[in-house]
Design a protein around this nucleic acid. Structure first.
Lengths: 224, 224
DNA sequence: CCGTATCCAATAAGATACTG
DNA sequence: CAGTATCTTATTGGATACGG
């Protein structure tokens, strides 16, 4: 059988390196591979299963996802965990340090959507749309408005708490919300960012609060 | 024989796309290719020539640099310009929008250097070290200290102005500085971040100010 | 169902030579 | 100096098969 030179060469170098002490170059070695940052994004609201990641990352193949998770684990951004019995299912979760990348990811996204070529009509995951709300939330527009919102995307739920000019958000059960929105992520995006009317999505509860709520997330201006 | 529907669908778009409306995914389509972010980094203090970029990006090959510049230009992050006569040489410069990515790049680098695997002994460009000072500058440590510093890396010079708890920095001639540091970028990094004594580098002018200056850039703590 | 391993085709990156 | 052209190597994605 023939030896695989390529494998050998890779072991020799360890891996492709930028050979640059700059923190940015190191960041690229940590999360610069294709899909890596989107995998991290999907973990930002808590642990996920392999199949869920695959579902919400349109186009990633099982072997690439597997490889990315292994690399991110080796680099200390992700760890494997087992949900407590009786579920006992294996999940992947971001480490504390991995979670600290969240603000940077949000800023990067905020910067990028100013591009003229950004196409908002493509699919979005529930993580994406919820993260985008954290990103675009305008505390000036919110003023002293306060409300608790619930979101249902299929069987995944989130709650968001607006008050004191801040937005606080987590994945998990909805309790005591003033209103609950049920929609596909893309439908919610159309209402928040595409000017679609709020009755394009299902709202239960305080409709006035919901109407105000969806105005709090202005898009940054496009580049000139 | 079976048709490959998936491949066909992607070919229609011309290039590999994440097919994801998330701003972060769009950012990766803009600057997610290998080397792209480091090319942008090198443009952050003003226009650069092809050969300078090649020199300061250790390991990039001419064809990849050429391709990256063309892509970044097509995406609106970089433009070609000609320096005024008699130089009349072609340079690449970041657009206004491209420059607005600078804070994000700094935050990404700051996050990444907390990694245990970060190796600060590798080479650095003058842009890297100057950007890192903007990143790590601690206004609390500076207090009401004010000084003007000059930096000389071969024939490239920068000036930095500290005052009011801010640091202001540009590439260009040094004038009226309280002190001027001449060193290789890596030598300066060793003093700022590696605990090397300040007499490892050449300082002209107010040595007391220089000694205080180099203490203003604490590294963030490593991950636990 | 939850992945992992392997094979193959397409693309991207790297090295080097070369040209105006 | 400022890139192209060309060839080689590495990575990615998709399909499929396999074990828990």
């Amino acid at each position: 059988m023939q030896l695989k030179i390529t494998t050998k060469a890779r072991q020799k170098e360890g891996k492709r390196s930028y050979d640059d002490a700059c923190g940015l170059a190191h960041a690229l070695e940590l999360i610069g591979e294709r899909w890596a940052l989107l995998v991290m994004r999907e973990l930002m609201f808590g642990p996920r299963r392999f199949s869920g990641l695959r579902r919400d990352l349109p186009g990633i193949s099982a072997n690439v996802l597997s490889q990315r998770l292994a690399e991110l684990e080796a680099r200390g951004l992700v760890r494997r965990a087992k949900l407590p019995p009786p579920a006992s299912v294996q999940v992947y979760e971001a480490t504390e340090w991995g979670l600290e990348a969240a603000p940077v990811l949000r800023e990067l996204g905020k910067w990028a959507v100013r591009s003229l070529e950004h196409d908002p009509s493509r699919p979005v995951s529930h993580v994406s749309i919820m993260m985008s709300m954290q990103t675009m939330f305008d505390s000036g527009l919110a003023g002293d408005f306060a409300t608790k919102a619930g979101f249902r995307f299929g069987d995944v739920t989130y709650s968001a708490d607006i008050g004191d000019g801040r937005i606080d958000m987590q994945r998990g059960p909805i309790d005591d919300s003033d209103f609950t929105i049920s929609a596909e992520p893309g439908e919610l995006a159309a209402v928040l960012y595409g000017g679609a009317p709020i009755d394009a999505i299902s709202v239960e509860g305080d409709m006035a609060a919901a109407k105000r709520f969806v105005t709090l997330f202005p898009l940054p201006p496009k580049v000139s």
